[in-house]
Design a protein around this nucleic acid. Structure first.
Lengths: 282, 282
DNA sequence: GTGAGCTCAG
DNA sequence: CTGAGCTCAC
């Protein structure tokens, strides 16, 4: 499908198109993936979008400066790309079949302007891609920055969007929410990534009106999107964390039909430590 | 073919073999290759020995410590390996169909014991593999060390071998001898790699009785074994140097039938900056 | 330009 | 364990 984009509504659409001027949403597929290097994972990403044809793919940890972002390869695959990167760390991108409007790539927190945020709009669908700071260690400065960044993001959302709007917030939140969401809850309770202060921040997103679309559909545990490279055979032993999310306002949660985690992408050459989380909408 | 090895002469050969106890040399193929990393070039090397089936392959710049040398892969390809490596730099190895006897891996010069030398014997054929220091810059300490190392190698040869013996000395000498042997002789005259002092040292090897087997067979220029990575399209433009050699005593030069440089190996994935130099013997 | 190995971060 | 980017050497 193609989303009805702003430019189309503005009049460039020819009269034979069914949904001209309509606000009726169309089926779409959305995915998020912490690539852990756009350049290293480019073959996996091109293969994946070739096979799965998502309408929108949110990418985190692209670890590539804008001048080196592989725009051509992405465009040859039939996608538009918006991105903001920096040297070595962080970096986010949104690939989409239809171009993104109203693009924003900055969310400065405490004067720190890391490449962790991209937002935009495709037709009536508003999208935010977030790469939440990892936080290093509970109680550390980096941990406090993580909480501040989450608070700032939520503040930005409440100030700029309405719970009744069509909004998706996807990305790597670096927080597991419940005992179902990581392989050793007792071992990590109170540690970074599984700390009550982080979880309370995420609850704030829910309280505002965002829904964890994966959890709406799937109630089982042991469903992870991240496996630490440092744990020997961690993927095979499924010692992972569910820390990547696709959140949606009520309207989006409502029209979400199915959700799945692509464990196959981990069988490819040079897998990332994360994998693809996918939501399909009616 | 299989060379008549020491162990065979010692009695393990069955009586149907033609050359039992004989000193008559058999046809063999010998090659030298500066791998510039044994680990990175392993696919190229395995492919090459699989296709070309050399009896002996001399390798330089293996850049791998002995504990990490890919012995298994080499043995699975049907070769014995002797090697001496160090971290990051230098490193030499000899792969051979028949095992090498009387292996020596040390040639300490001025107290510096870098991994630049392996010698051994297969039957009556004595072999030396040398990775001569690059020399940095004419007149530098490293340049003087290069000359000292060459002098020491020649002294070692004259002290331990006889010009009438069957001796091969192969490797990367990091010296071009004449204007035919590099792409810009006037540009590099007197520079490291094309300096009269280095050339005089190599002449010493010839004066003792070693023959540059390539040059015995091929009189043309523009025949190179090394192309500096840093020169844009240097290989395509054939801006190279002939600095790798297979030298032999008179008896070996005599029975050398043909010599060639394998430019095809440079078309493979991740080519080295050097390529294979090959001599076939009757 | 390329490889090794180091530091930093995850 | 993995990636980036740095230094070093060639």
């Amino acid at each position: 499908m193609e989303l009805i984009s702003h430019t189309l509504v503005m009049g460039r659409l020819n009269s034979s198109t069914a949904f001209y001027g309509s606000k009726v949403p169309q089926a779409m597929k959305v995915a998020t993936f912490n690539a852990n290097s756009m350049r290293v994972r480019l073959p996996i990403i091109l293969d994946w979008i070739g096979r799965e044809a998502p309408d929108i793919l949110f990418l985190q940890e692209t670890k590539v400066q804008d001048k080196d972002f592989p725009v051509n390869a992405v465009e040859e695959a039939g996608y538009h790309a918006v991105f903001r990167g920096q040297k070595s760390y962080n970096g986010v991108a949104i690939l989409s079949k239809s171009p993104l409007d109203d693009v924003k790539t900055q969310l400065s927190v405490e004067g720190v302007d890391e490449a962790r945020f991209v937002s935009g709009r495709i037709g009536d669908i508003h999208v935010i891609n977030a790469y939440v700071p990892q936080g290093f260690e509970a109680g550390s400065d980096k941990f406090r920055f993580k909480l501040a960044w989450l608070e700032h993001l939520l503040g930005y959302i409440t100030a700029n969007y309405d719970p009744s709007s069509q909004l998706l917030v996807a990305g790597d939140f670096n927080v597991a929410l419940t005992d179902m969401d990581l392989y050793d809850p007792d071992g990590f309770r109170g540690e970074v990534g599984f700390h009550p202060d982080e979880q309370a921040m995420i609850e704030g997103f829910f309280n505002w009106g965002l829904v964890d679309i994966f959890r709406k559909h799937i109630r089982e545990g042991n469903q992870y999107t991240f496996w630490d490279y440092r744990i020997p055979s961690g993927f095979k032993r499924n010692m992972g964390w569910r820390i990547d999310y696709i959140l949606g306002t009520a309207s989006q949660a409502e029209r979400s039909r199915s959700v799945w985690i692509d464990r196959e992408a981990r069988a490819m050459e040079k897998p990332s430590d994360h994998t693809f989380l996918v939501v399909e909408f009616d």
